[in-house]
Simulated scan of single mutants.
Amino acid sequence: MSLSVQALTGEDIKAALPELARLRITVFRDWPYLYDGTLAYEEEYLAKFAAAMGAVCVIARDGDLVVGASTGAPMIEHADEFGEPFRQAGYDLSKIFYCGESVLLKSHRGHGLGHKFFDLREGQAHALGGFTHSTFCRVVRPDDHPLKPADYVPLDGFWTKRGYAPVPGLTATYDWKDVDHDDETTHTMQFWMKALR
């Protein structure tokens, strides 16, 4: 295993988008997202991300193979369904950096790449300047969901070690099609946040 990690910004992000779309569809199909995505939707979603001012895309490679990716951008550049809960809670969106998805193939987990993803995204927030908080969100699923794997270990402990904590009552909703549904359904997303120093 020959791992390398690179943070891309500006126009350099666009070249990574096809691999990022592939990874999102592959990784998010598993629990807890159960996302039944399409390349057409991914291309549209990621094109908006790539155009965001201050965006960063962290790419992990094993040799020449892209095995993981992680995104981040100023919250003010993201969709209203993510920003609105913060506005309603009294936060200044211009001071919040949003860590978007992290996707990593199962074969390459446990090698510290999750920490690198956060290090480089938080590093982008510091480089841009003016951000007081970093945040991300996770889908909320019932513990008794029929598709939950018996051996599933949530990432709460990892996120807590990174200094993040769930913010009570700070949630958003987002629609997508689950692998076991015929149509899109609404999902609750819980925000976690940490203060940047």
Rank of each mutant, 00 (worst) to 15 (best):
F136C: 02
S134H: 00
E122W: 01
W176N: 03
F28P: 08
D119H: 09
S70Y: 02
F158H: 10
M75Y: 00
S94H: 10
R24I: 13
H126A: 12
Y41H: 10
T173P: 00
D80S: 14
A16L: 09
D180H: 15
G37W: 02
P154R: 11
G123S: 04
V66A: 06
D175K: 01
Y33G: 03
L39P: 03
L113W: 02
V140M: 09
I13A: 05
D80P: 06
G37K: 05
V140N: 01
V5W: 02
L93T: 15
A15S: 14
F131H: 01
I76D: 09
S94M: 07
D80A: 14
L104Q: 09
G123V: 01
D92Y: 09
R121E: 01
T9C: 13
A7F: 09
F158T: 11
A69R: 00
D12G: 05
A79M: 11
A195I: 02
L155H: 07
V140K: 06
M53G: 08
M75T: 09
H187G: 05
L128T: 02
G83M: 13
G114Q: 07
E84T: 15
Y174V: 07
W192K: 00
F117N: 01
K116C: 13
P154Y: 05
A195V: 10
G163L: 10
Q124R: 14
L3P: 03
L105F: 06
H145G: 07
G114D: 06
Y174H: 13
Y45R: 14
L65T: 15
A7M: 08
R138C: 12
M75R: 04
L34Q: 09
D64F: 04
L93I: 14
A16N: 04
S70V: 05
Q124W: 00
L46E: 09
D180Y: 14
D183K: 13
A150L: 12
E84M: 15
Y45V: 08
A172I: 03
V153Q: 14
Y45P: 02
G100N: 07
T132K: 12
K14S: 08
G90A: 13
A40C: 04
G100K: 08
D143I: 05
H145K: 12
P149Y: 10
G130P: 04
L34T: 06
W159G: 06
Q190Y: 01
D64E: 15
Q88I: 04
R24P: 07
D36L: 08
R138L: 12
A15E: 14
P85K: 13
A172D: 03
R109K: 15
L23K: 10
M1I: 14
L65N: 11
V67L: 10
M1W: 05
D64S: 13
L147I: 04
G83W: 00
T135H: 01
A21W: 03
H115C: 12
F136I: 00
A52R: 11
L196Y: 00
A7S: 15
D175F: 00
R121W: 03
